[in-house]
Lab assay of single mutants.
Amino acid sequence: NKFNKELQWATWEIFNLPNLNEEQVKAFIDSLRDDPSQSANLLAEAKKLNDAQA
């Protein structure tokens, strides 16, 4: 299933962003679980936040 692979990839990527704190990671993962179809958008937002906090 396409969404499942995207969800797994986005989850792994978010867990490995070095500049997000635990609460931010949890919030993004919760959002992914709530709406897996938004995984690409949520990953992009997480990466933006990660870069901003570098």
Rank of each mutant, 00 (worst) to 15 (best):
Trp9Val: 07
Trp9Pro: 02
Trp12Met: 08
Ala44Gly: 06
Asn21Glu: 06
Glu6Lys: 04
Ala27Glu: 07
Asp34Ala: 14
Lys26Phe: 11
Asn19Val: 01
Leu20Phe: 01
Thr11Leu: 15
Ala52Trp: 10
Ala46Gly: 01
Asn50Phe: 02
Glu23Gln: 11
Ala52Leu: 13
Pro36Lys: 02
Lys26Ala: 10
Ala54Tyr: 08
Phe3Leu: 12
Ala52His: 09
Glu45Val: 11
Lys5Gly: 09
Trp9Met: 13
Phe3Val: 12
Ser31Pro: 01
Lys47Glu: 04
Ser39Lys: 04
Ser39Gln: 05
Ala46Tyr: 04
Ala27Gly: 10
Ala10Trp: 08
Thr11Lys: 08
Thr11Phe: 14
Leu7Trp: 08
Ala40Trp: 15
Leu43Gln: 03
Ser39Thr: 13
Asp30Leu: 15
Ser37Asp: 06
Lys5Phe: 04
Ala40His: 08
Asp34Val: 13
Arg33Gly: 08
Pro18Leu: 09
Ser37Arg: 06
Gln8Trp: 14
Leu17Gln: 03
Lys48Met: 12
Gln53Arg: 05
Val25Phe: 03
Ala54Asp: 08
Pro18Val: 07
Ala46Val: 02
Trp12Gly: 05
Ala46His: 00
Glu6Thr: 05
Asn50Trp: 01
Ala52Asp: 09
Asn16Pro: 00
Phe15Met: 15
Ala44Ser: 10
Ala52Ile: 11
Leu7Arg: 01
Phe3His: 12
Phe28Val: 02
Lys47Tyr: 15
Ala54Val: 10
Val25Asn: 01
Trp12Ala: 07
Ala10Met: 06
Glu45Lys: 13
Asn50His: 03
Asp34Trp: 10
Ser31Leu: 09
Ser31Val: 07
Ser37Gln: 08
Ser31Asp: 06
Ala27Ser: 13
Glu22Phe: 13
Ile29Leu: 10
Ala54Arg: 06
Asn4Lys: 04
Glu22Ala: 14
Ser37Val: 05
Lys2Gln: 15
Asn1Met: 02
Ala52Arg: 10
Glu6Trp: 15
Asn19Ala: 07
Trp9Ile: 10
Thr11Pro: 02
Glu23Asp: 12
Ile29Asn: 02
Gln53Gly: 05
Phe28Gly: 00
Phe3Asp: 13
Asn41Gln: 09
Trp9Tyr: 09
Glu45Pro: 01
Phe3Ser: 10
Phe28Met: 04
Asn21Asp: 09
Asp34Gln: 13
Lys26Gln: 07
Gln8Ser: 05
Ser37Pro: 03
Phe15Pro: 02
Trp12Lys: 06
Ala52Gly: 08
Ser37Leu: 06
Asp35Leu: 05
Leu49Lys: 04
Pro18Ala: 07
Glu13Ser: 04
Asn21Gly: 07
Asp35Asn: 11
Gln53His: 05
Asn19Gly: 04
Trp12Tyr: 09
Leu7Lys: 02
Trp9Lys: 10
Ser31Gln: 14
Asp30Tyr: 13
Leu32Ser: 02
Thr11Ala: 08
Leu7Ser: 04
Asn41Ser: 14
Lys2Phe: 11
Phe3Arg: 08
Leu32Lys: 00
Gln38Leu: 07
Ala27Lys: 11
Glu22Ser: 13
Ala40Thr: 10
Lys5Leu: 04
Ser37Ile: 06
Glu13His: 07
Glu6Ile: 11
Ala40Lys: 14
Phe28Leu: 04
Ala44Asp: 08
Asn4Pro: 08
Ile29Arg: 02
Leu7Ile: 11
Pro36Gln: 03
Ala40Glu: 09
Asn41Met: 14
Val25Leu: 05
Ser37Asn: 06
Ser31Glu: 07
Asp35Met: 09
Glu6Asn: 06
Leu7Gly: 03
Glu6Arg: 04
Asp35Glu: 06
Ala10Arg: 02
Glu23Arg: 13
Glu23Thr: 12
Leu32Phe: 03
Phe28Lys: 00
